[in-house]
Design a protein around this nucleic acid. Structure first.
Lengths: 154, 154
DNA sequence: CACGTTTATATCGTAAACGACATAATAACA
DNA sequence: TGTTATTATGTCGTTTACGATATAAACGTG
């Protein structure tokens, strides 16, 4: 049992946790111009890509549970960017769709990803490295979320 | 301006955000046996490595601000694992040190990192890959946290 | 059709995160 | 020395996360 494994620099979760928070913080100047938080921006990205989907479909795309999504969606609705309507086909489902204002916000959001990449590369992070890392993380995401679902169905 | 950059699968922040949450969730079964949350575990790891340091030193190691750390430390103190004492040398500082109970908890925490690695590799994630990723993320952490400090001092 | 089960969503409580701001102690320097 | 600036910590309010639990609709099966 190697005690050095408990040192912070040898942890795998800690750098994930920190880098995730730091990148979210790096998004903040761009997102605060649109009066959005990062999770709100994620929801809108999902809807800009596929409008009129159910809460459950958003849950699956973002890997967030409904106890997180429900209040999050309510706030975005309160800002007038989305509407929530019970599905008539299945009254358990709630369909989330963009308002005109919410759809228009996409235009202002368009330059954000590019600007973020510019910022990261200005900090000395290679663009190639980012692309490689992204695909690796997407693989990890699939593996870990599968495990997550298995636990849920226990 | 490429609209596909706004798609979730092309984002760099989203996989970080998700993988970070999923790994934290994977820690949960181990940590809940010790009645700890992940951030509480991080604080204890810092103290197990260097006991009797100031809140400010913990802040620098974990990249968490004092408005997050103060209540976090209070909770850990409430659990009887640490003590907080004003430094006599500099009365602005608060020195955090482990209680006997807090120090003993390290023994129970020792097997956690190894078990986590076993779990990840059982999921199909290569150990080599983890080591490489860790060093890459540690580099990113330094770059992004430097930028973070620069913003603070503006 | 009745009734237990699953599904979709939501509420509640607690613990992070973090911006904005407050407070007290120390440092810096005119 | 007096006064301004900086440093270390903390409080407050808001938004996420998420476990536990609730509720209503739909499904499955005898």
């Amino acid at each position: 049992m190697d005690a050095s494994q408990l040192e912070l620099k040898n942890q795998i979760c800690f750098p994930f946790y920190s880098v995730s928070r730091l990148i979210t913080k790096a998004y903040k100047p761009f997102l605060s111009k649109l009066n959005l938080t990062y999770p709100q921006y994620l929801v809108l990205m999902v809807l800009w890509e596929s409008d009129g989907i159910s809460v459950n479909q958003i849950k699956e795309k973002l890997l967030l549970d409904t106890n997180t999504l429900s209040p999050l969606l309510k706030r975005i609705e309160g800002m007038g960017l989305i509407k929530r309507l019970r599905s008539t086909a299945d009254e358990r489902s709630v369909i989330v769709s963009l308002t005109e204002e919410g759809a228009k916000l996409k235009i202002q959001a368009l330059p954000i990803p590019e600007k973020m990449l510019e910022n990261l590369s200005a900090e000395g992070i290679e663009i190639d490295e980012i692309a490689g890392l992204r695909s690796m993380l997407n693989t990890w995401m699939k593996i870990l979320s599968k495990n997550n679902n298995q636990n849920e169905s226990k």
